[in-house]
């Protein structure tokens, strides 16, 4: 009896969490433009999506910015994590603490402050400013992920490698990189998804000639939800799930 209650309870929780996503997925295959009733299965919204050039170009922009921002953030975050782990210098704790401040800050605060910065510097809003903004958003996530990975190794491992005849480069090549790699790749994937679905920061920091997908969708739904948006959401959900599963798998300790 109590077992059954547990199942019902769990079912309700999962329904609450995932039912909206399921609804979107179902409607993306619904052969009706406005009706909420089921009119049969179709792939026509996906086809329409494929031919919607403004949507497709926004999607490509989003993938481009996510890829670039994730790569930039991964490079910066990994180096920052290595430095914070390996060296002791004044301001190290402050730097480390500021990562968490960045992660906890509301997006709107980051967005407005970046916008003010760009305006003060007279930078035209567009791809470069959006790239910087997304990299700023992602660096703390990469740095903390990689840092905790470094923190997991024993300090003596690097000494042991040197003791066995490895020079600085070989230590980095054969010990540091292989050990940090899962966290680095995981951090990249995490950054990729963060960048891909960001609305608020993108809204403030990009210009009219570089439109990204979430903003495009946002402007589309103001005129009512069209089924091709449903289709788009399903595609993006797919990309996010793949990235997430990959990053979880890589971050999971092999041992």
């Amino acid at each position: 009896m109590s077992r059954r209650l547990k199942w019902i309870y769990a079912g309700l929780v999962y329904a609450f969490l995932y039912l909206p996503l399921v609804v979107v997925a179902i409607f993306s295959f619904n052969d009706s433009k406005y009706s909420l009733a089921w009119h049969g299965f179709t792939l026509r919204w996906y086809e329409k999506l494929w031919h919607n050039s403004s949507l497709m170009s926004a999607a490509l922009n989003s993938l481009l910015i996510a890829g670039c921002a994730a790569t930039l953030a991964t490079l910066m975050g990994t180096v920052a994590a290595f430095i914070m782990h390996q060296y002791r210098f004044p301001g190290r704790k402050l730097l480390f603490g500021s990562l968490f401040v960045m992660m906890m800050s509301p997006d709107i605060v980051i967005a407005i402050s970046l916008l003010l910065l760009f305006l003060a510097l007279h930078l035209p809003l567009g791809f470069p400013t959006l790239l910087v903004a997304h990299a700023v958003l992602c660096v703390p996530f990469v740095a903390t992920t990689v840092y905790s990975r470094f923190h997991g190794f024993q300090r003596d491992i690097l000494d042991a490698a040197k003791d066995l005849g490895a020079d600085e480069y070989q230590v980095f090549r054969f010990i540091v990189i292989p050990l940090a790699l899962p966290a680095v790749v995981g951090g990249w994937l995490l950054s990729f998804t963060l960048s891909l679905d960001d609305v608020i920061i993108s809204f403030f920091t990009t210009g009219p000639d570089f439109e990204v997908l979430p903003l495009r969708i946002y402007s589309m739904v103001r005129l009512g939800i069209k089924p091709d948006v449903n289709a788009l959401c399903v595609v993006m959900m797919g990309i996010t799930i793949v990235a997430l599963v990959l990053s979880r798998t890589l971050l999971k300790e092999k041992e």
Partner: peptide
């Protein structure tokens, strides 16, 4: 000279 470290410091990967 080679060292055996206190916590072994084996390469986990």
């Amino acid at each position: 000279v080679n060292t055996v470290f206190q916590n072994y410091a084996l390469f986990p990967h």
